[in-house]
Design a protein around this nucleic acid. Sequence first.
DNA 1: CGATATTTTGACCCGGCTCAACCCAAGTGG
DNA 2: CCACTTGGGTTGAGCCGGGTCAAAATATCG
Lengths: 255, 255
Amino acid sequence: MSNDAKSTRDDAPAGAPKRCAICAVRETSVCALCDAKELGELDAANFTRQFAAGQEILGAGTPVAFVGSVISGVVRLTRTMADGRRQIVGLLFPGDFIGRAALGVSDYDAVAASDVTLCAFRRTQFEALLRATPHLERRRLSMTLDELDAAREQLLLLGRKSAREKVASFLALFARRLGHDEEADDGVTRVFEIPLNRDEIGDCLGLTIETVSRQISRLRREAIIEVARNREFRVLDLQALLEETGDDSDGGILS
Amino acid sequence: MSNDAKSTRDDAPAGAPKRCAICAVRETSVCALCDAKELGELDAANFTRQFAAGQEILGAGTPVAFVGSVISGVVRLTRTMADGRRQIVGLLFPGDFIGRAALGVSDYDAVAASDVTLCAFRRTQFEALLRATPHLERRRLSMTLDELDAAREQLLLLGRKSAREKVASFLALFARRLGHDEEADDGVTRVFEIPLNRDEIGDCLGLTIETVSRQISRLRREAIIEVARNREFRVLDLQALLEETGDDSDGGILS
DNA sequence: CGATATTTTGACCCGGCTCAACCCAAGTGG
DNA sequence: CCACTTGGGTTGAGCCGGGTCAAAATATCG
């Protein structure tokens, strides 16, 4: 249960630097457009919550007490059918916002895929802040439109891409969102860790665990990627990986 | 090209009832929360545009000159891959909003599926209105979140449902959004017209035209639906149709 | 190091795709 | 008025990509 999560509200002494000012997702989160005054109001209302990997953050059909920004870690949003079939309908990375302030319940589960730190607000309080803070609502709208675009991209993936294209697209997404470059003797290698097991990757891509595994094995055999300890990926040939996604653009991954 | 569309701006005499006040989508569109004063400002800025079935409203990668609400008809949003594979990523019904005010280009095509009437605004002007009209931005956020939910529902459909479940879900959607009841000797029949051909239905559901046709034929053989002139559907057994969708809830279709 | 969970691999199968023919309604022109 | 075309839509036959089932290999953890 989410009740196990740690909450902290360590009040900084007056005059000390505001926590918001040193926030890791200051530039990308819902408060990105806020000025110093607005930031002060948010700073007074928020609290930090920690979730361990696998812990439920919001449950489908259960009351939503809080909303907030992902500071670190990855959250997965899951829809489940009556007979157990599952689809991961969203992945939230640092800076992304979780929860719908105006609604008391959620349609899907939100689960911490890795250890997650959240900058949280009481739901009803955040709703009031939204209305009182134009920059906040504007940024929230813009982020939601981006999320909608991402979801529509995923519709194309699920509806029209082959298993190989799906897996390549998925790896390219993580390379872009979580990857960092590493110097190798034969060029640069993009390295990242996927905080999902094969089952969960399958639930993202509308594939079975076996098909995901086979496609990853094949990319590895072709020396496009390397995999260590199941979840650590190294892209040896980014160009080749992007060509396998079926997309015409690189999604902004090339610098 | 969209330039062929008819535009009208028939200025009403002062004191005459504002057009917004008698708008068919007054309660559901982006201006649903606006008060009389705000409505007056919108009324002064909007203009009506008509599009014939099949006409392009916005093209992927081309500049967006205007945004607006669908007054009547259905608009489809399409993503196309380099090799021609297509996915319909959204259907806009009366009341839905088309176009992203803050962005000058769109990622997908918007095409009139049926004859469409749009309540349009110049893009940059609407962007200014958004900022000046809190009720407008709030409603736009709420509608975008609803669209996101719908897109995620569709992710589950594309990723995890069988062809039969996909087609049943699709028909149930139109029964809910466009259907009207008709008294029959053996109970009520839900009637609607789908403004898409089999090809386009396939592009919605990630299926081929043949599979769509086979599933429709099967539902017809089982006396769950009737089809006239290819696009006119009558649901003879709504309960049975809903059971074939694979969903546990009825999506609010039952009164 | 043993125990357990996860991943990989192989063999086989089936739902939905491909390819091809046919149907049917709505023009169109002789 | 009818032959011919044209553009969906339907139906059938066969195939194949990805699912299913089973077993082996590898990680993780106490």
